[in-house]
Amino acid sequence: MESVFEAQSKLVPEMVELMMERYRLLKLVKAAGPVGRRTLGEVSNMTEREIRTMLDHLRDQRLINISKTGTSITNEGIKVLHALETTIDNLSRLSLLAKKLEDFLGIRSVKVVDGSTENSSLGIEAAKQFMNEIGDGKTVAVTGGTSIALIPKYIKSSMLQKDLLFIAARGGVGEEIGLQANVIAASFAEACDSSYKAFYYPEALGEEAHKAFLKDPAILKMIDLYNTTDCVLHGIGDAQTMAKLRNSSMEEQQLLLEKGAKGESFGYYFDRSGKEVQRLRTVGIQTEQLQEVPLIIAVAGGKNKAEAILSYMASAPKQTILVTDESAANEMLRLLTECVK
Rank of each mutant, 00 (worst) to 15 (best):
K79D: 06
L91A: 05
I88L: 05
N90P: 11
T74P: 00
I64S: 01
N75A: 15
N75W: 08
S92T: 14
H57R: 15
I73K: 01
I73M: 03
N65L: 14
S67I: 06
K79Q: 09
T86V: 12
Q61L: 09
R93Y: 09
H82E: 13
T71S: 07
H82G: 12
K68N: 10
T71Q: 04
I51T: 08
I66A: 06
T53P: 08
N65Q: 13
L81D: 00
S95F: 07
I88F: 02
V80M: 05
T74F: 02
I78E: 11
R93W: 05
A83Y: 04
I78T: 09
M54A: 13
I66F: 01
T69A: 14
R59T: 12
K68S: 14
D60R: 14
I51N: 03
S72M: 03
L94G: 10
I73W: 02
S95H: 11
I51G: 08
L91Q: 07
N75Q: 14
R59L: 10
K68M: 12
R52T: 15
T53A: 15
L58H: 00
I73R: 00
T53L: 15
D89M: 05
L91N: 04
T71F: 03
T69G: 12
I51E: 07
S67W: 04
T53Y: 14
S72H: 03
Q61Y: 13
A83L: 05
S92M: 13
L63A: 06
S67M: 06
T86G: 09
D89R: 10
R62F: 12
I64P: 02
K68P: 00
R59Y: 07
K79F: 13
M54Q: 12
S67N: 10
S92K: 14
L84S: 03
G70F: 01
R62Y: 15
M54G: 07
L94I: 06
I88Q: 06
E85Y: 09
L63Y: 06
A83V: 05
G70Y: 01
E85M: 09
K68F: 08
T69L: 11
L63F: 04
L63I: 01
I78G: 02
G77E: 00
I73V: 06
M54S: 10
I66T: 06
T86Y: 11
G77W: 00
L94S: 06
T71E: 03
E76M: 04
L84R: 01
V80P: 01
I78A: 09
D56W: 05
